[in-house]
């Protein structure tokens, strides 16, 4: 099926000339390092549809920072964010909740795991504007030095930290898993943690801690 045909057909009603023909795809990308950053002129008029910008602008947020509300660990916060700000950045840079770590910044390491409405997600791939109505829980919210979560206790007991940078993400993942799997075996624990990267090689103790915490929850 030819996509170009399809598109010209769909667009024929509004703008018959706006096919993809003649659109430069060079853009600002470099072909094998042959061009210099920022020297290629911006392409204009490359897009088919005319946007009803007026109607969009009225309801759209941004692109500059606007005040939003986030409910984090049971507390409401008003903060100014640009729509492009990730939840990880909002938590860390705006709310100083730096327990949430950013490692890969692309959803591949789970270090930035927080709970949205009780489910673990990557805060690096979540925009702050998306979660305004949601309950956000971070590592700072599941336990405190005075009143630790059983998983936190078990991590201390079983030496499940080395450098500690993956630890918050590990704990947010493990503690959620145990809520729904009260009596897991080792394979289930491994499966639950299979998205969390650790470079120090602390996994064996993370497994032990998680199994041990399951008996106290």
């Amino acid at each position: 099926m030819n996509r170009d045909n399809l598109k010209s057909k769909n667009e024929s009603e509004s703008s018959p000339e706006k096919t993809r023909k003649g659109i430069s795809r060079r853009g600002f990308l470099k072909g094998a390092g042959m061009t210099t950053v920022g020297t290629v002129a911006l392409q204009s008029g490359v897009l088919g549809n005319t946007l009803d910008e007026q109607s969009l602008d009225e309801k759209a947020i941004g692109p500059d920072a606007e005040l939003i509300k986030l409910k984090v660990n049971g507390e409401s916060h008003s903060l100014a964010v640009e729509p492009r700000m990730t939840l990880a950045s909002a938590l860390r840079d705006k709310l100083q909740l730096t327990g949430t770590k950013v490692v890969c910044d692309r959803g591949a390491c789970s270090a930035c795991t927080v709970w949205i409405d009780g489910k673990p997600v990557n805060s690096c791939l979540t925009l702050a504007v998306e979660v305004q109505e949601k309950e956000i829980t971070t590592i700072e919210g599941i336990g405190t030095p005075e009143k630790l979560h059983p998983v936190q206790e078990a991590f201390i007991e079983h030496d499940a930290t080395q450098c500690g940078f993956c630890t918050p993400g590990m704990i947010m993942t493990a503690s959620h898993f145990l809520q729904n799997h009260p009596n897991p075996d080792l394979e289930e624990v491994k499966t639950a943690l299979r998205g969390n990267l650790c470079r120090c090689g602390t996994h064996p103790n993370v497994f032990k801690a998680t199994l041990s915490a399951s008996k106290k929850m």
Binding site: A108, S110, T113, L125, T126, T173, G195, N196
Partner: peptide, 9 residues
């Protein structure tokens, strides 16, 4: 597919 975290989103 992906990780548990990714599947939630």
């Amino acid at each position: 597919a992906g990780t548990a975290q990714l599947r939630n989103s």
